[in-house]
Amino acid sequence: MKILVLGETSRDIGESLSAISSIEGDRVVALFSTSHDEASRASALGYKVYHLNTRNTEAAYKLLVKVYEAESPGLIVSVSTKNPRDVLSRLAGLLDLPLATNVRKISVGDGKIVYERAVLSERSISLEEADPPAILLVMPRLFKPIAGEGQGSIEELEPSEEPAARILEVKRKELGGARIEEADVVVGVGRGFRRREDLRLAFELAELLGGAVGGSRPIAADLKWLPEDAWIGISGKRISPKLYIAVGISGAPQHMAGVSGSKIIVAINKDKSAPIFRYADYGIVADLYEILPILIRKLKERKGLG
């Protein structure tokens, strides 16, 4: 079966190629990027690269339709980032192809594409099958990118017409570089904090424990009290520290899915019926404004700092 891999970076393409490593068949790559360096890195993975040289999702979609017609793949795979999801949902609609996201495992048997994916905000795993051609989007950062094994060719594709939806401006987001994925201890902050200044309690606790601070989606994406790279959950980062302390977080499934790899989960919440207590190892029903200063004082005393 011929497989078309779409991605915005050579790393993402490497991850998709890794996800399909057990499936036989030719591979071709479509890189959705304006970077020529990225195109040469992608071609170093060893397959032919169609370089969709645009930033615009509508233009990329039109170019991808041409690639699809030229290659007739039985399977299209991408890492599930936002722009590829946009582009592939349009292709799926045009051709009535099945499309699945959050895929964790892919195989082919009896001419069918068989895959496992997370559904219901990652509370459940669905084992499914689809007839080719099908589109699968794999979870980011789940597969280790394959190493390059040769030199593929590059075919440059430029948009032939002006898209109806035009990009006027691109603003880079400010990221904080918190590296919560690598920390041994993460203190997670939620809407239980009333003011941005109060997060200093969490930072102080994290520092005493040698850890980092992350937050729920409303804290990072909506209120912007933390940079977005400190956003924990299915649409943010997945973390697997030795200790995760959730403070003032209710425990929505979309948040908890991002911390399920933690060794120990501690929850601090003033509402004893908060769902988080069902998903924690240790829970304390308390007002964070009361207990955090006490924990901080006691930790300082232990360290001889008090």
């Binding site: 009535d96 699945a100 499914e128 099908a134």
Partner: peptide, 10 residues
């Protein structure tokens, strides 16, 4: 276009 073979709770 696709079929569910099995659904499991995590």
């Amino acid at each position: 276009k696709r079929a569910i073979r099995e659904l499991r709770i995590i």
